[in-house]
């Protein structure tokens, strides 16, 4: 079977697909934290209108399939507001990021709420303003608590990134598709891609677990007061 030489020929393209995919994932994770964290803080400490607004945002972005979100933004919303020139990659990254923010905001919210009430009380009793207390006492603890749950976002975003195929983003699945149509080799190629995804998935998780271990604090995360 002369599959191997062909696979090797295509290796650079596959790798560029991997790079694209990872780019999408990193953008989604980054945007997820960037928007998700303030939203979580808004839900825990903010006034009613803010909690409401965040609630609606989360409901919307979690209730729609990723495919529909991609179609909606790529074909509909972005062109309608004058951003029709954006590349599919950018749109894909933004949509994945906005959706990621919705999911991640709930992870962060749970973490912030699980930081013991006493921490805020002690901080305030020392004269810290609410903002200082959140920044210096609550968040450092909440982020550590959130890390395991947040790590679980990685596989989800990775598998969702493949759906960006539907709007023409040139990521790993797209390259795989092209490879199949052009080389007429189907199963080996698909299985190889599945293998790549699996490696990316579990490899990434391993790295995240290492990170968790690195920043762990003795006795922390086991019922903080």
């Amino acid at each position: 079977m002369d599959v191997l030489p062909i696979l090797i020929d295509w290796l650079p393209y596959l790798l560029s697909g991997v790079a694209s995919t990872l780019g999408l994932v990193l953008a989604a994770l980054g945007l997820g934290v960037l928007f998700g964290l303030p939203m979580a803080l808004g839900q825990v400490y903010g006034a009613r209108p803010i909690r409401w607004a965040v609630g609606i945002y989360v409901w919307f972005f979690r209730g729609l399939p990723i495919l529909v979100l991609l179609f909606l933004f790529w074909f509909g919303i972005f062109p309608a507001i004058g951003l029709g020139h954006l590349s599919a990659f950018v749109v894909g990254a933004v949509v994945l990021g906005l959706r990621g923010a919705a999911y991640q905001s709930q992870i962060f919210r749970g973490a912030v709420q699980s930081v013991g009430e006493g921490q805020m009380i002690a901080a305030r009793s020392l004269g810290m303003s609410r903002l200082t207390a959140i920044r210096s006492v609550i968040l450092p603890q909440a982020m550590r608590i959130a890390l395991p749950g947040w790590s679980n976002e990685y596989p989800n975003i990775l598998t969702d990134s493949a759906v960006c195929y539907a709007i023409g983003v040139v990521e790993l699945l797209t390259i795989t598709s092209r490879m199949v149509t052009q080389t007429h080799i189907t199963m080996p190629v698909y299985l190889a891609t599945a293998g790549i995804f699996i490696v990316l998935n579990y490899g990434g998780l391993k790295l995240l677990h290492r990170l968790e271990a690195r920043i762990a604090i003795p006795g922390f995360g086991t019922g903080a007061m």
């Binding site: 990775l158 598998t159 493949a162 699945l173 598709s177 698909y190 995804f197 699996i198």
Partner: peptide, 9 residues
């Protein structure tokens, strides 16, 4: 570990 879309393909 595999995207559902790939599985469908």
């Amino acid at each position: 570990g595999t995207p559902l879309l790939l599985l469908l393909f």
